[in-house]
């Protein structure tokens, strides 16, 4: 309707959306803590099997991508569109790399017959089945969010290259950044919960 743009309004909307995202994952974190409390030994044994090297690598990748995302916003505000686009491209690349590593990890697990409802998993104790159930649903839902993030980042990249996002109008990029950082932060909680606490 109105031709004016309410930047503050857009940001409020984005923060509210992120709040609902936190509650979406919140349900899973409640389940995780409740089941971990009930099955400490099973969770310990199952977590031992996850690949800590790949987990750490992915954490580094995602944190670095948050840095390039923030720098991309910084440079669009300074009016350096080229550098901003380049940094956004690096962010996209790192996000893709994260999903690549993730799929290597999942493939290996599935290759070892450790996937939901697999005969090998069903032969184990309830706590270990729960651990893998939560592992696949939580990292899966997170991966889905990374994928959506990649799509949005690509759109932003096109908009920057076309000049529709520039030093005067960059709220969509800032909002994308907010989303990307949230996805990053959720991983920062997932990583220790699944890979480090054993």
């Amino acid at each position: 309707m109105g031709t004016h743009q309410d930047d503050t309004g857009s940001k409020i909307g984005m923060w509210l959306f992120l709040l609902s995202e936190i509650l979406l994952f919140g349900g899973l974190f409640i389940l995780y803590s409740s089941y971990r409390y009930k099955n400490p030994i099973d969770f310990h044994l199952a977590a031992w099997e996850l690949n800590r090297v790949l987990g750490t690598l992915n954490t580094l990748i995602l944190i670095t991508s948050s840095l390039t995302m923030a720098l991309s916003i910084f440079f669009i505000q300074k009016g350096n569109r080229k550098l901003s686009a380049l940094l956004l491209f690096v962010t996209l690349f790192l996000g893709g790399l994260f999903l690549g590593v993730k799929s290597v990890e999942w493939t290996a697990k599935i290759g070892h017959d450790l996937y939901p409802n697999s005969p090998r998993l069903l032969g184990r104790s309830g706590g270990e089945i729960l651990f893998y159930g939560l592992y696949y649903s939580m990292t899966g839902l997170h991966g889905l969010h990374v994928l959506v993030g990649l799509l949005v980042l690509s759109v932003m990249l096109v908009l920057i290259l076309k000049g529709k996002i520039n030093e005067n109008r960059f709220v969509p990029l800032e909002n994308t950044g907010l989303y990307w950082h949230l996805v990053d932060m959720i991983w920062i909680f997932l990583f220790p919960l699944f890979y480090l606490i054993t």
Binding site: L31, S34, Y35, K38, N39, D42, P116, N117, L122, S125, G126, G127, E128, I129, L130, G133, L134, Y136, S137
Partner: peptide, 13 residues
């Protein structure tokens, strides 16, 4: 997918 988070037969509650 049979992920088993609420199924008592798979340890769920």
């Amino acid at each position: 997918l049979g992920i088993g988070v609420f199924d008592p037969a798979k340890g769920g509650d």
